[in-house]
Every structure is written in C-alpha cells, then in structure tokens.
Design a protein around this nucleic acid. Structure first.
Ligand SMILES: [Mn+2]
Ligand SMILES: [Mn+2]
Ligand SMILES: [Zn+2]
Ligand SMILES: [Zn+2]
Lengths: 144, 144
DNA sequence: ATCATTTTGAGACAGCTTATCAATTTCAAT
DNA sequence: ATTGAAATTGATAAGCTGTCTCAAAATGAT
C-alpha cells in the first residue's frame, strides 16, 4: 500500500526541525490516526488507539495533539465540555453548525461573514488574528 | 439614595415566583454587584464581595449567577479558561471583540452578520437557537 | 408564630487537562 | 556502529474550574 498523508507528514517534520523536536513512533502513529478524523477528542483517540497500542499514554495524546496545533495541522475547539481537535491540515479555516439534538457538526465557510467581521474589527480599531463562530441549533432530523 | 436596579430586581422576583424560589439577602447582594459589571467571573465576584461579606460562599456565587442566566439577566460565556457571566439585563444580544494583548473586551452587534448566519443555517437545514461569535485580535493601543 | 421548603456555606468531589519525573528513545557527532 | 546530550514517554500526581453534599439557617405561606 502507498504511503499515507505524505504532505502532512512533511509539514510536521518541518515544524519539528525548526523547534529541535524529534520524530517519534508515537507522533507518526497519532498523526495518521488524527488525519483520518474530522474532529476528535483526546480521550476518543486514546481509546481508539488503545486497541492497537495499549500502552500509549493519554498525556502523550494531549501533548501530541497540542503539538499538531502548534504545527498548524490541528485547531483546538471547545464545543462542549471536552476539547475537540479539528483537522485543518487540508481544509483550512472554517466555522461550525452544531446540532444540540444529536451533536452533529457541519462545517461551513462564508466569505461574506468573514468580510463583515473584518469591517466590525476595523470600525473598532482592532486587527483580527483569529475568530470563533459557532451556530447552535437543531438539524433537520432532530426537528422532527 | 434612590433604589438601584429596580427593573432587574423585578425581573428576578418574577422568575423566583414562577419557580418556587426564595428571595434571599445573598441574591439581592449578588444581583446589585453583578449589575455594576459588564462581564465578570464567579471568582472575581467572590473576591470583590468578600470585602464586605467575608462569609459569602463561592458555591453560592456560582449558583446565583447560574440562576441569573435562567432568569435571562445574565449569559455565560467562555472566553478563556473561566466562565464570564455577561450582563445582558438591559443590553440584549451582542457579540465580542477581544484583545489578546490587554484582555479588553468590546461588545458589538451586527445585523448583517446575524442575517447571513441565518442564511447559512437554512442552507444546511438547521434552525439556529443560539450562536457564539468572538473576534480575537489586537486593539489599537496594543498594536503600538 | 409555626413549619415545610428552600437556601446557604464549607468542603468534598468530579471532569478535563497539564505537570512531574524516572526510564526510554532519538539523533547528531564521533 | 557507538556514544551521549537532549527530547520524549507513560504513569500518575496535581491543578483548575465548577458542581454536589449535607447539616444548619433562612424564607415565606399559612
Ligand atoms: Mn471543523
Ligand atoms: Mn458582553
Ligand atoms: Zn441533530
Ligand atoms: Zn489591547
């Protein structure tokens, strides 16, 4: 089988090189598992990986997912009580619609909103670095 | 001096009446302190009120601020690690610009953004109940 | 004034995440 | 290939924020 996630692996290696960090078996393993998801919590990944690697520690998962955030591959989001690590490696920025009935998460992107956000910021003398937009409601199925 | 926050006090009393809850010295005290703020954490209010009421418990502050949320006077927001209780008693809905340099928070409201949010939701079959929009960046002073 | 019901305060507890640290692994320099 | 300084790991302790517990106190309808 062909190598997976080559581009993201390269991005990670570049970040590691720039910061005197090392490439470990665990980091490779977690990267491959992470890139298969859209959003995932550290706990969920811990249980998922425990099947093949029972001794992979939860702290390592947290550390590594936070590393991915630093490397620009992931982004931490706080939808509920647990942090969701969002795979932005090949998707770039986006926002979310969240169903409070079934926890379904839909990703979206809207240039008009983003433009208006810039406008609001400028009017107030701010320069935006990041933003968070989450729409909570009911999806079509949960509305009966 | 004249009575303060009469209207909000009435709103609280109405909520209490509807839910078989009682009006206590603590609830009055916390309401008056809360309405003087724009946003505040439970801890901050705890320390602030400790000066005049050293035996007011932190749990009571949390309980009471959550009660205010139920009564529609406050709204819980999660800007950082601690929950900020937002005074919406006479302001209604709004979103926030947050300076990552000095933690300044500017409130704003933008109908165009709200309308586009509805549009996005409709396109995806959702009906929005609430939303959260936070713009993080640097204010004019922090930008040098 | 009585008294069932609600509230309070103090601290225990819980959920999630990070810190600690000895043992192990990586990797650049021999 | 071997060495060894530096980084990483895994297990678990600790931290932080917020809620729960429960006996004592306060409230308010009667
Ligand atoms: Mn996403
Ligand atoms: Mn506000
Ligand atoms: Zn749903
Ligand atoms: Zn600032």
């Amino acid at each position: 089988m062909a190598a997976k996630h080559v581009k993201e692996m390269e991005a990670l290696k570049e970040h590691l090189g720039k910061h005197q960090l090392k490439l470990t078996r665990q980091r490779e393993l977690i990267l491959n598992a992470f890139l298969r998801q859209e959003h995932i919590t550290a706990e969920a990944m811990y249980h998922q990986l425990a099947k093949s690697d029972p001794h992979l520690g939860l702290a390592t998962i947290y550390r590594t997912l936070n590393l991915f955030c630093d490397a620009g591959l992931a982004q931490a989001r706080h939808f509920g009580s647990q942090t969701q690590y969002d795979n932005i490696a090949h998707k770039g920025h986006h926002d979310h619609l969240i169903c409070t009935g079934c926890d379904k998460i839909v990703e979206f992107e809207n240039c008009d909103i983003e433009r208006l956000q810039e406008e609001v910021a400028t009017q107030n003398g701010f320069i935006i670095k990041t933003h968070r937009l989450e729409l909570y409601g009911l999806c079509s199925r949960c509305r009966h």
